[in-house]
C-alpha cells in the first residue's frame, strides 16, 4: 500500500473533507441530529480513506473478484446510498405517523377547549 497523489485522489480527498466539515457544522448548528450525522461521518471517512490509499481500492476489487476496481467502489457507494435512502424513508414514515397523531390530538383538544369556553361563558353564544 503506497501513498500516491494524483488529481482524482486529491479531488476525492477534498470532497470528503467538504462532506465532513459540512456535517460537522450542521450538527453544531443543530440542523442535523447526531443520530443521523453518524452515517454521514462514516461515508465521509470512507471516501477519504479510499482516496488517500489508492491500493485499498485495488485490493477491494481483487477481494470481491471485480477486475475494474473503481466499479467495485461505485457499487459499494451505491449500496450505501440505497441503505441511507431506506433509512430516510423509515424516518419519514415515523414522522408522518407522529404528525398525524399530533394533528388529531390538537383538533380534538381545540374542540374540548371550545366546549369548555362555551360552558364558562354561559351556554348559547359562541
Amino acid at each position: 500500500m503506497h501513498m500516491h497523489i494524483d488529481k482524482i485522489h486529491l479531488l476525492g480527498a477534498i470532497f470528503s473533507f467538504v462532506i465532513l466539515a459540512a456535517v460537522f457544522v450542521l450538527v453544531r448548528e443543530r440542523h442535523l441530529q447526531e443520530k443521523y450525522s453518524l452515517v454521514w461521518f462514516l461515508i465521509g471517512f470512507f471516501i477519504l480513506v479510499m482516496s488517500v490509499f489508492e491500493g485499498l481500492m485495488d485490493w477491494f476489487g481483487d477481494f470481491i473478484g471485480v477486475y475494474y476496481a473503481p466499479s467495485a467502489f461505485f457499487g459499494l457507494l451505491i449500496a450505501c446510498a440505497y441503505l441511507l435512502l431506506l433509512n430516510m424513508s423509515v424516518s419519514i414514515s415515523h414522522l408522518k405517523t407522529h404528525n398525524r397523531a399530533l394533528s388529531q390530538e390538537l383538533g380534538l383538544a381545540k374542540l374540548r377547549l371550545e366546549e369548555l369556553e362555551e360552558k364558562v361563558n354561559g351556554s348559547g353564544h359562541d
Binding site: 398525524r100 394533528s103 388529531q104 390538537l106 383538533g107 380534538l108 381545540k110 374542540l111
Partner: peptide
C-alpha cells in the same frame, strides 16, 4: 366540529 390543523 373538529378542525384538523392540516390535511391528513
Amino acid at each position: 366540529v373538529v378542525d384538523l390543523p392540516c390535511n391528513l
